Computed example of a mutant assay.
Amino acid sequence: MHTITTARAGTWRLPVILLGISGLRLDRGTRYRPARLLLFALTAALYYLLTPILTTPAVATAYAGTVWLLYYGGLCLTLGGPVRTALIARFGEDRAYALYEVALGLLFMNQGFAQAVVIHAHGNSLPAAIPSWAAYVTGAALMAVGTFYKVWAARTAGLDTYYCRDMFTGRPLTDASELVAAGPYRHLRNPMYGAGNLHAYGWALWSGSLAGLAFAAAFQAGIYLFYHLCERPFIQRAYVRR
């Protein structure tokens, strides 16, 4: 998430923020809300039906790897390549962003579920030298800290920033003169991608999953790769140099 936040960042209620970072936006009017709710429910039902298959070790690993490629490859191709301009030319900016937003929300859902099935499929695989109580305590602490920072950062920056709306439209969300450091951005350079991802490591530790720790690191490395290749150059171009 951007290292710069605005004084007018969204202050949505906690349930809306939690659903938003999970893939379902309910803060952008009512036009597409029924379709979003239906798609969210159908996806959750599909996850439930496919859980016995997805939680087998080989399938879980392949699924998580596929999600990694679609998520970070899709973000880079869309926001750092020609896909967004083609969508805008075809559908117009508002409709194109709505389609992108739904697709990104599905990727958010799949990212979380992919890590969940990997942790389930490869549970109890930590070295025996690590006491179970230490894994529980450390895991619980990391989950609490990571969730707190992710929600705090998303609330501070706003869900439009969380979904990279400025990158999709190709212009800043606000005037550069109004940018301020706020919330967790006052003391952390990038709390969303840093501290905000600690919950994934905590969940893996709690479940004793060595593969879960590896995939948590892979997904965090992927978002930093996207940040350095696509997001940071946009911030420099659209905000800092204005």
Rank of each mutant, 00 (worst) to 15 (best):
H2S: 15
T3R: 09
T5P: 00
T5A: 09
T6A: 14
A9T: 04
I21V: 14
S22K: 01
S22R: 04
R25T: 10
L26N: 01
D27H: 11
G29A: 10
T30S: 13
R31D: 13
A35K: 07
P57I: 09
A58C: 00
V59Y: 04
Y63M: 10
T66D: 00
W68S: 07
L69D: 05
L70D: 06
G73V: 07
G74Q: 05
L75V: 01
L75Y: 03
L77F: 08
G80H: 05
G80R: 03
V83P: 03
R84P: 02
R90E: 11
F91V: 08
G92D: 08
D94P: 03
D94S: 13
D94N: 12
Y97W: 12
Y100A: 02
E101Y: 02
V102A: 09
V102D: 04
V102L: 13
G105D: 02
L106Y: 01
L107G: 03
N110T: 06
F113P: 01
I119H: 05
H120L: 13
S125T: 15
A129W: 15
A129T: 15
P131C: 12
V137L: 15
M143K: 07
A144G: 10
F148C: 10
K150V: 14
V151L: 11
W152T: 06
R155L: 07
A157M: 13
G158D: 04
D160I: 03
D160E: 12
D166K: 00
D166S: 08
M167T: 00
T169H: 12
T174H: 15
A176V: 13
S177W: 01
A182G: 06
G183C: 09
P184E: 05
Y185S: 02
R186M: 10
L188H: 14
N190E: 08
P191W: 04
Y193D: 07
G194S: 15
G196F: 02
H199G: 04
Y201K: 07
G202I: 05
W203M: 15
S209Y: 04
L210N: 04
L210A: 14
L213N: 03
A216P: 02
Q220G: 12
L225Y: 10
C230P: 00
C230V: 15
E231L: 08
F234H: 12
F234K: 08
I235F: 03
R237M: 05
V240W: 00
V240P: 00
